Simulated scan of single mutants.
Amino acid sequence: MKRTSILIFALLLGRKLNAQENIAKLTPTVEIGKSLFSNTSKRDFSRKGKVYIHWGWNFSWYDRSDITFKGPGYDFTLKNVTAKDRPSKISLDYINPAQLTTPQFDFRFGYFFKDNYSVSIGWDHMKYVMDIPQKVTIDGYINPSVSNPGITTGNYAGIYKNQQLEVKDDMLTFEHTDGLNYVSAEVERYDDIWVAKNKKQMLAMETGVGAGFVIPRSDVRLFGVGENNFWNFAGYGVSIKAGLKFNVTRKLYFQNVTKAGYIDMDKIHTTGRNDIDRAMQTIRFLENYTAIGYQF
């Protein structure tokens, strides 16, 4: 009788252990990325496999830049050119669906391939406006008549060897205002800073690197001739970024990010005679944007 009881107990215990092992095998493991700010995670869910989308608005700042203009009868570089952005005034354009692309904006769509890493594609719609008038250094030459058909250059004609010149609007206006469009792919990392007890509100640091194409719509007048040119693939850009992401819920979030980048364009449209006239420019920029997003 005693042996029978022991055997029954052993069988029941074995079945219980097997059941627990099977349950453990069926229960998925939550893989949560390690944060730079903590050795232990306070989240009980993983972002892996989730997608997100966000929309926001930006301000941009530009370092001094060199711009080279080339075409029949001219080849000159304006050095250390200053410029600024042109944010739209606060109005209903920021929330009007028909006018959403009028202000300086940012759009991004991403996918978490790990809990704390994502890959995304996006569009940074910045604006670049050269300060006019301004004094710059000029190097190169300008003939009395340039382009084809000829454009008279007046008092700007000459050979320049790193001389000072005041650029006025009768010589040049130069803008990427519709806009300086940086279309890029980025890889991002997220590090939890704070997680609420309810596991819904949280604050994380986001860092990332990106690269992509620059597709400006350049509004240029060279010696009075030009147009608001059509969009074109003018060059490439690279960037790094860092910012904060605050989740109001697990899905809804707000984000503020600062991005530093380098743009190289060698096919900028100028007079509208794109087969003969063009400009080249490199731009170092700093951009800050605030966005609202949703994680699915």
Rank of each mutant, 00 (worst) to 15 (best):
N181F: 04
T173Y: 03
N247F: 08
T271P: 08
K114P: 04
T137E: 03
F246S: 03
K199S: 11
Y289W: 09
K161C: 05
G235A: 01
G150Y: 05
A279D: 02
Q295M: 10
L78Q: 03
A98V: 10
G243N: 08
R250G: 05
T153K: 00
A24Q: 12
F213H: 01
F69S: 02
T27E: 11
V187I: 14
E287Y: 03
A291W: 00
F37K: 11
Y190I: 07
G237A: 11
I8Y: 07
Y62I: 06
I268M: 01
I132M: 00
T207E: 13
T173K: 07
I95W: 12
N22V: 08
Y289R: 10
R221D: 13
K25W: 08
I151H: 04
L92D: 13
A185L: 08
L7E: 14
Q134H: 04
N80A: 13
N116F: 08
I240W: 05
G122S: 06
R189S: 15
K199N: 14
N256C: 03
R221C: 05
N148T: 15
G208I: 00
F233L: 14
R108N: 14
R108F: 07
I283S: 00
A185K: 04
G33F: 03
F76P: 02
N80F: 05
V220K: 03
A19C: 11
I23G: 06
R64M: 13
Q255M: 04
T29E: 13
D139T: 10
T29D: 12
F246V: 02
P72C: 14
D115G: 06
S91W: 12
G154K: 00
F112C: 04
Q163V: 14
Y190L: 08
N116R: 09
V220Y: 03
I283D: 01
Q20M: 09
F45W: 15
T270E: 03
T102A: 12
D169P: 00
M280V: 11
